[in-house]
Protein backbone atom coordinates (compact mmCIF):
# COMPACT_ATOMS: atom_id res chain seq x y z
CA UNK A 1 0.00 0.00 0.00
CA UNK A 2 2.88 2.34 0.83
CA UNK A 3 4.32 1.79 -2.62
CA UNK A 4 1.04 2.84 -4.15
CA UNK A 5 1.04 6.02 -2.12
CA UNK A 6 4.58 6.78 -3.31
CA UNK A 7 3.53 6.13 -6.91
CA UNK A 8 0.58 8.46 -6.41
CA UNK A 9 2.77 11.16 -4.93
CA UNK A 10 5.29 10.81 -7.76
CA UNK A 11 2.51 11.12 -10.31
CA UNK A 12 1.16 14.18 -8.55
CA UNK A 13 4.66 15.73 -8.43
CA UNK A 14 5.02 15.15 -12.16
CA UNK A 15 1.69 16.74 -12.91
CA UNK A 16 2.53 19.75 -10.74
CA UNK A 17 5.66 20.77 -12.64
CA UNK A 18 5.71 24.37 -13.78
CA UNK A 19 4.42 24.78 -17.31
CA UNK A 20 4.66 28.42 -18.03
CA UNK A 21 7.73 30.46 -18.91
CA UNK A 22 9.32 31.83 -15.80
CA UNK A 23 12.55 33.35 -14.61
CA UNK A 24 14.72 31.28 -16.93
CA UNK A 25 13.27 32.96 -20.00
CA UNK A 26 15.91 34.91 -21.91
CA UNK A 27 14.99 38.44 -22.96
CA UNK A 28 15.54 37.80 -26.66
CA UNK A 29 13.06 34.91 -26.48
CA UNK A 30 10.37 37.53 -25.99
CA UNK A 31 11.22 39.43 -29.19
CA UNK A 32 8.73 39.34 -32.02
CA UNK A 33 9.41 40.23 -35.65
CA UNK A 34 6.45 40.90 -37.94
CA UNK A 35 6.44 41.76 -41.64
CA UNK A 36 3.64 42.35 -44.10
CA UNK A 37 3.49 43.46 -47.70
CA UNK A 38 0.90 44.76 -50.14
CA UNK A 39 -0.27 41.82 -52.24
CA UNK A 40 -0.52 44.14 -55.26
CA UNK A 41 3.07 45.34 -54.97
CA UNK A 42 5.43 44.10 -57.66
CA UNK A 43 8.86 44.43 -56.14
CA UNK A 44 10.52 42.66 -59.07
CA UNK A 45 10.11 45.81 -61.18
CA UNK A 46 11.85 47.98 -58.56
CA UNK A 47 15.50 48.60 -58.18
CA UNK A 48 16.23 51.78 -56.25
CA UNK A 49 15.51 52.75 -52.68
CA UNK A 50 16.21 55.46 -50.12
CA UNK A 51 16.31 55.17 -46.36
CA UNK A 52 15.87 57.65 -43.50
CA UNK A 53 19.11 59.11 -42.21
CA UNK A 54 18.01 58.55 -38.61
CA UNK A 55 15.49 56.58 -36.58
CA UNK A 56 12.72 58.91 -35.44
CA UNK A 57 11.31 58.42 -31.94
CA UNK A 58 7.51 58.51 -32.02
CA UNK A 59 5.38 59.06 -28.95
CA UNK A 60 2.55 56.66 -28.22
CA UNK A 61 0.59 59.71 -27.04
CA UNK A 62 -0.08 62.03 -29.98
CA UNK A 63 -0.50 64.96 -27.58
CA UNK A 64 2.95 64.79 -26.08
CA UNK A 65 6.48 64.48 -27.43
CA UNK A 66 8.35 61.18 -27.15
CA UNK A 67 9.83 60.53 -23.72
CA UNK A 68 12.83 58.66 -25.09
CA UNK A 69 15.66 59.14 -27.51
CA UNK A 70 17.38 56.79 -29.90
CA UNK A 71 21.14 57.02 -29.53
CA UNK A 72 23.23 57.74 -32.60
CA UNK A 73 24.92 54.40 -32.09
CA UNK A 74 21.62 52.52 -32.09
CA UNK A 75 20.27 54.55 -35.00
CA UNK A 76 23.41 53.80 -36.96
CA UNK A 77 23.10 50.05 -36.33
CA UNK A 78 19.53 50.07 -37.64
CA UNK A 79 20.39 52.09 -40.76
CA UNK A 80 23.51 50.08 -41.59
CA UNK A 81 21.65 46.79 -41.12
CA UNK A 82 18.88 47.98 -43.46
CA UNK A 83 21.43 49.05 -46.05
CA UNK A 84 23.35 45.76 -45.85
CA UNK A 85 20.20 43.71 -46.31
CA UNK A 86 18.87 45.85 -49.15
CA UNK A 87 22.21 45.63 -50.92
CA UNK A 88 22.16 41.87 -50.47
CA UNK A 89 18.73 41.79 -52.10
CA UNK A 90 20.03 43.72 -55.11
CA UNK A 91 18.67 47.20 -54.42
CA UNK A 92 20.58 50.38 -55.21
CA UNK A 93 20.65 53.15 -52.64
CA UNK A 94 19.82 56.58 -54.07
CA UNK A 95 18.87 59.97 -52.71
CA UNK A 96 15.16 60.74 -52.32
CA UNK A 97 15.56 63.48 -54.94
CA UNK A 98 16.24 60.68 -57.48
CA UNK A 99 12.66 59.38 -57.03
CA UNK A 100 13.51 55.89 -55.72
CA UNK A 101 11.12 52.99 -56.19
CA UNK A 102 10.90 52.46 -52.44
CA UNK A 103 11.52 54.78 -49.50
CA UNK A 104 12.15 53.11 -46.18
CA UNK A 105 11.07 55.22 -43.26
CA UNK A 106 12.55 54.29 -39.88
CA UNK A 107 10.94 55.05 -36.54
CA UNK A 108 10.79 53.73 -32.99
CA UNK A 109 8.14 53.62 -30.28
CA UNK A 110 8.10 52.74 -26.61
CA UNK A 111 4.97 51.61 -24.80
CA UNK A 112 4.39 50.27 -21.32
CA UNK A 113 2.64 46.94 -20.72
CA UNK A 114 1.14 46.16 -17.34
CA UNK A 115 -0.06 42.72 -16.26
CA UNK A 116 -1.85 41.68 -13.10
CA UNK A 117 -1.30 38.10 -11.98
CA UNK A 118 -3.03 36.11 -9.30
CA UNK A 119 -1.26 33.09 -7.92
CA UNK A 120 -0.95 30.65 -5.09
CA UNK A 121 2.71 30.39 -4.16
CA UNK A 122 3.65 26.88 -3.16
CA UNK A 123 2.13 25.42 -6.27
CA UNK A 124 4.04 25.31 -9.49
CA UNK A 125 1.27 26.60 -11.68
CA UNK A 126 1.09 30.21 -10.57
CA UNK A 127 -0.47 31.24 -13.82
CA UNK A 128 -2.71 34.25 -14.44
CA UNK A 129 -6.34 33.28 -14.45
CA UNK A 130 -5.70 29.77 -13.18
CA UNK A 131 -3.99 29.71 -9.83
CA UNK A 132 -5.29 26.23 -9.08
CA UNK A 133 -4.70 25.53 -5.46
CA UNK A 134 -6.51 25.20 -2.23
CA UNK A 135 -8.34 27.86 -0.28
CA UNK A 136 -6.02 27.64 2.72
CA UNK A 137 -3.14 28.86 0.62
CA UNK A 138 -2.79 32.63 0.59
CA UNK A 139 -3.65 34.19 -2.72
CA UNK A 140 -1.12 36.72 -3.99
CA UNK A 141 -1.58 39.39 -6.59
CA UNK A 142 1.48 40.45 -8.53
CA UNK A 143 1.68 43.41 -10.86
CA UNK A 144 4.37 43.49 -13.49
CA UNK A 145 5.07 46.41 -15.71
CA UNK A 146 7.63 46.64 -18.45
CA UNK A 147 8.46 48.77 -21.44
CA UNK A 148 8.24 47.43 -24.94
CA UNK A 149 10.39 48.92 -27.65
CA UNK A 150 9.60 48.69 -31.35
CA UNK A 151 11.56 49.55 -34.46
CA UNK A 152 9.24 50.17 -37.35
CA UNK A 153 10.36 49.99 -40.97
CA UNK A 154 7.86 51.25 -43.52
CA UNK A 155 8.41 50.86 -47.27
CA UNK A 156 6.65 53.76 -49.03
CA UNK A 157 5.73 54.14 -52.67
CA UNK A 158 6.78 57.71 -53.40
CA UNK A 159 5.92 57.31 -57.06
CA UNK A 160 2.21 56.97 -56.37
CA UNK A 161 1.53 59.60 -53.77
CA UNK A 162 -2.13 60.54 -53.57
CA UNK A 163 -1.87 64.31 -53.36
CA UNK A 164 -5.63 64.78 -53.16
CA UNK A 165 -6.03 62.67 -50.02
CA UNK A 166 -2.46 63.35 -48.89
CA UNK A 167 -1.59 59.69 -48.49
CA UNK A 168 1.47 57.68 -49.46
CA UNK A 169 0.90 53.99 -50.31
CA UNK A 170 2.65 51.55 -47.98
CA UNK A 171 4.08 48.59 -49.89
CA UNK A 172 5.77 46.81 -47.06
CA UNK A 173 6.43 47.15 -43.38
CA UNK A 174 8.52 45.43 -40.77
CA UNK A 175 8.29 45.50 -37.01
CA UNK A 176 10.97 44.35 -34.58
CA UNK A 177 9.62 44.41 -31.06
CA UNK A 178 10.82 43.33 -27.64
CA UNK A 179 10.87 44.24 -23.98
CA UNK A 180 13.35 46.93 -23.00
CA UNK A 181 15.68 45.52 -20.41
CA UNK A 182 18.55 47.68 -19.22
CA UNK A 183 20.94 44.87 -18.43
CA UNK A 184 20.79 43.07 -21.78
CA UNK A 185 24.33 41.96 -22.60
CA UNK A 186 24.56 43.38 -26.10
CA UNK A 187 21.50 45.46 -27.11
CA UNK A 188 23.04 46.52 -30.43
CA UNK A 189 23.52 42.90 -31.53
CA UNK A 190 19.98 42.12 -30.44
CA UNK A 191 18.59 44.97 -32.59
CA UNK A 192 20.80 44.00 -35.52
CA UNK A 193 19.64 40.38 -35.31
CA UNK A 194 15.97 41.43 -35.23
CA UNK A 195 16.35 43.82 -38.19
CA UNK A 196 18.17 41.08 -40.12
CA UNK A 197 15.18 38.85 -39.37
CA UNK A 198 12.82 41.50 -40.80
CA UNK A 199 14.55 41.06 -44.16
CA UNK A 200 15.05 37.33 -43.91
CA UNK A 201 11.31 36.81 -43.69
CA UNK A 202 10.68 39.25 -46.57
CA UNK A 203 12.16 37.26 -49.48
CA UNK A 204 9.85 39.04 -51.96
CA UNK A 205 12.13 42.07 -51.59
CA UNK A 206 14.89 40.13 -53.29
CA UNK A 207 15.20 41.69 -56.75
CA UNK A 208 18.43 39.96 -57.73
Amino acid sequence: MKKLIYIGLAAFALTSCNLYPGGDTRTEQLDVVVTQYDLNADFSTMKTYAVSDSVKPISSDPNSPPSFIISDEMSNVVIQTVKANMAGYGWTLVDTSMKPDLVIDLSATVTRNTNVYGSYPGYGWGYPGYGWGYPWYPYYTTVTSYEVGSFVLVGLDFKNIDHTNQTIPVLWHGLAQGPIINNVDDPLSRVQRDIDQVFEQSPYLNVN
Binding site: P21, V34, Q36
Partner: peptide, 24 residues
Amino acid sequence: NVFSEEKDISTWTFDNLSVTSHNW
Protein backbone atom coordinates in the same frame (compact mmCIF):
# COMPACT_ATOMS: atom_id res chain seq x y z
CA ASN B 1 -5.08 17.04 -19.47
CA VAL B 2 -2.43 19.68 -19.96
CA PHE B 3 -0.40 19.69 -23.15
CA SER B 4 2.56 22.01 -23.51
CA GLU B 5 5.54 22.55 -25.73
CA GLU B 6 8.22 25.18 -26.18
CA LYS B 7 9.22 25.91 -29.77
CA ASP B 8 12.47 27.62 -30.52
CA ILE B 9 12.42 30.70 -32.69
CA SER B 10 10.54 30.03 -35.94
CA THR B 11 8.72 31.93 -38.65
CA TRP B 12 5.06 31.44 -39.47
CA THR B 13 3.58 32.94 -42.64
CA PHE B 14 -0.12 33.63 -43.13
CA ASP B 15 -0.84 35.02 -46.60
CA ASN B 16 1.17 38.26 -46.78
CA LEU B 17 2.01 38.35 -43.06
CA SER B 18 5.03 36.70 -41.44
CA VAL B 19 5.71 36.43 -37.72
CA THR B 20 8.93 35.26 -36.12
CA SER B 21 9.12 34.49 -32.45
CA HIS B 22 9.96 32.03 -29.77
CA ASN B 23 6.79 30.14 -28.89
CA TRP B 24 5.24 28.59 -25.84
